[in-house]
């Protein structure tokens, strides 16, 4: 179809789309702009300055929260990706009884509202008498990261040509060797995008972490939430902008790499 045909110009479609993009990005731009504010106010512009970034870097509480976030996200990503890869391999192939149910359970964390998972997990830890700490956060994060890691890996497996593995077997590769030499390299992009998703989801999680975080086990989103509760400040603008820009850089890079590879 010819997309330049004037017949396809529906009234109001273009302005609505532009409104949509403005709505999506204006708040982000404003937040980042205000983080360079030299004054004490969070919203009144008073000259350019980087002092709030310095304040962020020199705040031991923020640095510790950032460290906690990184530790939890790295470990949760590692564990969830390994579990998800194994599960995807197990779920691949001829269907068996109960497979639909198992697939449902693997996707369950996506379906259940976060607040429900959060309070259920909190009550569970209280029930078994486990003290809340960074460790309980890690457990909760692994649980909700599993489906995010699982889905891309499973999709990748489904798109793979089964004849390649058969060819390897025909050429006398042992199943173990065939897996590492043929299946695994083909699966790797799926594993990497699953891991990336899991990492970002874990870094950003607030609700579940908030409920299962023990005293002193603050992650970055939990820190930001309590800071906002105390009132807005240019320092929150700065730390928020750092988080936003890091994620945007991260996605832009993966988009750029994806475009180049075509």
């Amino acid at each position: 179809m010819n997309r330049r045909n004037p017949l396809w110009r529906f009234t109001g479609v273009r302005p609505t789309a532009w409104l949509f993009f403005a709505f999506l990005y204006v708040p982000i731009v404003v937040l980042v702009a205000l983080s360079f504010n030299g004054g004490q106010s969070a919203t009144l512009w008073n000259g350019f300055s980087l002092k709030w970034y310095a304040a962020v870097a020199n705040d031991p509480e923020i640095v510790r929260a950032a460290k906690n976030s990184l530790i939890v996200a790295s470990l949760a990503t590692l564990i969830a990706t390994i579990l998800a890869t194994l599960a995807a391999l197990g779920m691949h192939g001829r269907t068996f009884r109960g497979q639909t149910l198992m697939g449902g359970v693997l996707g369950l964390p996506l379906l259940i509202p976060e607040i429900v998972t959060a309070v259920a997990t909190l009550m569970f830890f209280s029930f078994i008498g486990l003290k809340l700490s960074l460790f309980t956060i890690l457990i909760a994060h692994v649980v909700f990261c599993i489906p995010f890691a699982y889905l891309p890996i499973r999709a990748r497996l489904q798109g793979m040509d089964p004849r390649l593995a058969e060819a390897a077997a025909d050429l006398y590769a042992s199943p173990w060797r065939a897996f590492w030499r043929v299946d695994f390299p083909l699966l790797l992009p799926g594993i990497l995008s699953g891991a990336m998703l899991a990492f970002i989801i874990s870094m950003d999680d607030f609700v579940i972490t908030y409920f299962v975080a023990g005293a002193g086990a603050t992650t970055l989103p939990v820190y930001i939430f309590s800071a906002i509760r105390m009132g807005i400040s240019p320092k929150i603008n700065a730390i928020s902008s750092i988080i936003l820009l890091i994620s945007i850089l991260f996605v832009a890079l993966s988009y750029y790499v994806g475009q180049r590879r075509r």
């Binding site: 708040p27 607030f206 928020s240 994620s247």
Partner: peptide, 9 residues
């Protein structure tokens, strides 16, 4: 891909 809390802020 960006933090919901921050965007709400």
């Amino acid at each position: 891909w960006t933090n919901l809390l921050v965007r709400v802020y």
